[in-house]
Design a protein around this nucleic acid. Structure first.
Length: 275
DNA sequence: AGTTAAACCTGGTTGC
DNA sequence: TGCAACCAGGTTTAAC
C-alpha cells in the first residue's frame, strides 16, 4: 500500500496532533517484521517530538527518561489511525498501539510486513542499518539530473527495478514507478545505464511530478489506505497505466501491457514508452 | 558488486 | 458452493 505519498500523508496527519503528547501506555499485537526492541512499559512517560520521514519510514522521536524514538514502516498493508478516547477495542490486525494524552495511535497491518522498532537515534542501531542504503529523497535539491544519470552508470538492471530498489532515489513503489516511467515515455525494461542524460532528466521531472500530484491528492487508496483520520486518497483515479492491463492507453489508445519484472507486475504502454 | 529469487504474512478475487 | 491458484501498495536476506 504505502509508497512515499501515502507515508508522507500519514506523517502529516499525525505530526501536529501528536506533537508534545505524553505516552500513557503501549500495547503489542501479533509479531511484526522484527521485535520492538524494548519493553512497551519503557515508553510510558516519554514525550513525542516532531514526526519525521525518511523514504517510506516514519520516525517518532521520544524524549524523557530515555532518549530515542520509534522507527516505523507500514510494509505492504499497514496504516495508522489516531483514535480519540476511548478507542474502540483493538481488532485482529491491530499489532501496535501507543496510548497518549492526545489520543491513541494504532497500527493496523493485516499482512504484518510492517515494523515498529525502538532506536536510540536515527544514527544508531537498528535504525542506522535500515536507513543506510537509502538513496536521495526525490525532492532533495542535491538530486540533480546529472547526479541521477551518474548513479545509473554500471546498473545493468531494468530502470523500473532500479527505481524500486530505492538505493538511488527513494519513494517510488510499484504504482509510482510505473506511472513515472509512463509520464517520461521510458520503457520499464530499458537497462538503467542505457538511459541518456536528457532522458534521466525527464525521468526525474516525471517522478517528482507524479509523487507531487499523488501527495496533493492524499495518496492512492487501492483497497484500504487511509491517513490517521480515516481519509482515503484519490490518486487511484489518476493512474494512467497501473492496473490497466488490456485497456487502451489514455494517450495513444494502444492496449496497456502487463509484464513481470523482479516478481512484481509492471504496467506500461508499448507504444508510448521507448527503449 | 550487482542481480535475482525466496521469504515474510493475510485476505480478496478468479477460475474450475 | 467449495476449493485451489493467483494476486496485492515492500524490503530484507540468502544465493548465484
Amino acid at each position: 500500500m504505502p509508497e512515499l505519498p501515502e507515508v508522507e500523508t500519514t506523517r502529516r496527519s499525525i505530526d501536529a496532533p501528536l506533537r508534545g503528547a505524553r505516552v500513557l501506555g503501549a500495547r503489542l499485537g501479533k509479531p511484526l517484521r522484527w521485535p520492538l526492541g524494548c519493553a512497551p512499559e519503557d515508553l510510558v512517560g516519554l514525550t513525542l517530538g516532531p514526526v519525521a520521514r525518511r523514504g517510506k519510514y516514519l520516525w517518532l522521536p521520544l524524549a524523557g527518561a530515555r532518549e530515542g524514538g520509534l522507527l516505523l514502516h507500514l510494509g505492504m498493508s499497514g496504516s495508522l489511525a489516531l483514535l480519540p478516547e476511548p478507542p474502540p477495542p483493538p481488532g485482529t490486525h491491530d499489532h501496535f498501539e501507543l496510548r497518549t494524552t492526545r489520543g491513541t495511535l494504532r497500527l493496523t497491518d493485516p499482512r504484518r510486513f510492517g515494523a515498529v522498532l525502538w532506536s536510540a537515534s536515527l544514527a544508531s542501531e537498528p535504525a542506522a542499518r535500515l536507513l543506510a542504503s537509502l538513496g536521495h529523497e526525490p525532492f532533495d535539491a542535491a538530486l540533480t539530473p546529472e547526479f541521477l544519470h551518474a548513479r545509473l552508470q554500471g546498473r545493468r538492471a531494468p530502470i523500473k527495478q532500479v527505481l524500486l530498489a530505492g538505493d538511488v532515489v527513494v519513494g517510488a513503489g510499484n504504482i509510482y514507478a510505473c506511472e513515472a516511467l509512463f509520464a517520461a515515455g521510458i520503457h520499464p525494461a530499458l537497462r538503467a545505464d542505457r538511459l541518456s542524460r536528457p532522458r534521466a532528466a525527464r525521468l526525474l521531472a516525471a517522478l517528482r511530478d507524479t509523487l507531487g500530484r499523488a501527495l496533493a491528492l492524499g495518496g492512492t487508496t487501492l483497497r484500504d489506505f487511509r491517513d490517521a483520520h480515516g481519509m482515503s486518497g484519490a490518486f487511484q483515479d489518476e493512474a494512467r497505466v497501473y492496473g490497466r492491463a488490456g485497456q487502451p492507453c489514455l494517450r495513444c489508445g494502444a492496449p496497456v501491457r502487463r509484464i513481470v519484472q523482479g516478481q512484481r507486475a509492471t504496467y506500461f504502454c508499448p507504444r508510448c514508452q521507448k527503449r
